[in-house]
């Protein structure tokens, strides 16, 4: 089985091949690929796909994993319902 069809981002249903295509089109940073492909923008916010994308970017740019820049981490840490948020800041 070719690994190209392996799902890299489960939330947005993106395969390794999809991501390699975006890299081939010239998007070479996490922030840029995130914006065009939506990788890491679903409910898990990159928990599953982040490491895989970093590895692809390292491979494509010749950088080490440590040198590949991450995208900004944004709140909330986990998905929160509007109802919970609307409950306000008081403990329940």
């Amino acid at each position: 089985m070719s690994d190209d069809k392996t799902i890299m981002c489960r939330c947005e249903d993106l395969t390794v091949e999809d991501i390699r295509e975006w890299i081939a089109k010239g998007y070479k940073t996490f922030e840029e690929i995130k914006r065009v492909s939506r990788i890491g923008m679903g409910p898990c916010q990159g928990r599953t796909c982040r490491q895989h994308l970093l590895r692809e970017l390292a491979k494509a740019t010749g950088k080490t994993l440590a040198e590949v820049e991450l995208a900004t981490f944004r709140p909330p840490t986990k998905p929160v319902s509007l109802e919970t948020l609307a409950g306000g800041e008081v403990d329940d």
């Binding site: 923008m41 679903g42 409910p43 916010q45 900004t72 944004r74 709140p75 909330p76 998905p79 929160v80 319902s81 509007l82 109802e83 948020l85 609307a86």
Partner: peptide, 10 residues
């Protein structure tokens, strides 16, 4: 919409 889950804020 109260049941929607917020995933990201910026």
């Amino acid at each position: 919409l109260k049941d929607l889950k917020i995933v990201r804020q910026w």
